[in-house]
Design a protein around this nucleic acid. Sequence first.
DNA 1: GACTGTGAAAATCTGATCTT
DNA 2: AAGATCAGATTTTCACAGTC
Length: 308
Amino acid sequence: MLGRQAALAKKIGQSLRDGVASESLREHLEAVRAAQPKPSSWAAVEDGFLRAMEVFDSHVIAGEAGEGERQNGKGDYFNDLIAALLEHSSGADLTKRTGVPGLIFDRHSLDVTYPPQGSIVEVLIEAKMLGTPKHPGSVKAKAFGRPGAADLLKRFKEAGFKTIDLKGGYGYKQSQANLAVQAGPSGDLTSWLRQAKPKSFILAAVRVVSESDFAAVVRVADSMQQAMDAVGLACYRPKGFDVDSLNPPAYEMVRVPRSVDINHVLHRISQDLRDAVRNVAERSADEDRVAGIETPAEAARKLTQGED
DNA sequence: GACTGTGAAAATCTGATCTT
DNA sequence: AAGATCAGATTTTCACAGTC
């Protein structure tokens, strides 16, 4: 139902909704949604983000944030924050989608996507948060906590494979429907990726703990650009990488190269979203032709289900 | 049709083990 | 000794199927 879909988009995760430590994150989200004029750039919410994370992390350090809040609440918050900014700047209605078929795997779950329904996913955004201060539950962690770079590569690789599989899956459907071919990659993977739908982006907010940690984060993000349409970073750190800024946490942003700057990338995404809104309005013929076609992964799944 | 149990998947974090 | 890599833990959410 339509009402259900709309509710899905606005639904708030349990940890973020109820968690005691997540109160500052909730409040910031509400402020961003209520503000006039509507904030649509990272710069407009950057300070609120840093202050909210300081309060959240102070609860984490005090041992007052449960596993659920650390692992789900924080991620949901960043996800919702990004979605709010992009909805404000593009007017597109962004939702979560599940069961979207790729070429190899038959169902992917997509965080922030447009449009909410139909066979053609135009734009896909993966939002990730990384880095945690040391807290009572992590005895072995160093004083600065876990470096942001520690988990970046693994998670970017997962996101990268997902986008390639989705682009491959849509390319398959297009060629089967005899539409303008966006065939498989031949020769230059990056060139193919850039012209294949869905437009795919990674946005990550990373708590960095040292110059080398920061350098590693930028390097991985820069490499990842070859597999995505763009990668955006919001890096923040304890002020000056100073131990005195660890507890209570005092954070500041760290400037990243322009090519991976979240401000820059958000602007690009909102342009793509506006294009996509027009595409969806004008190209319903493509939608109809592709709608009945299954990728090999989808077909295989139906086959095995039937035999069960 | 609405409710409920179940299993898969995703989000992030943690600790151990290799490398340099 | 520090950094990089690998494997796994914990919690939450959602689709799906079965039941009233």
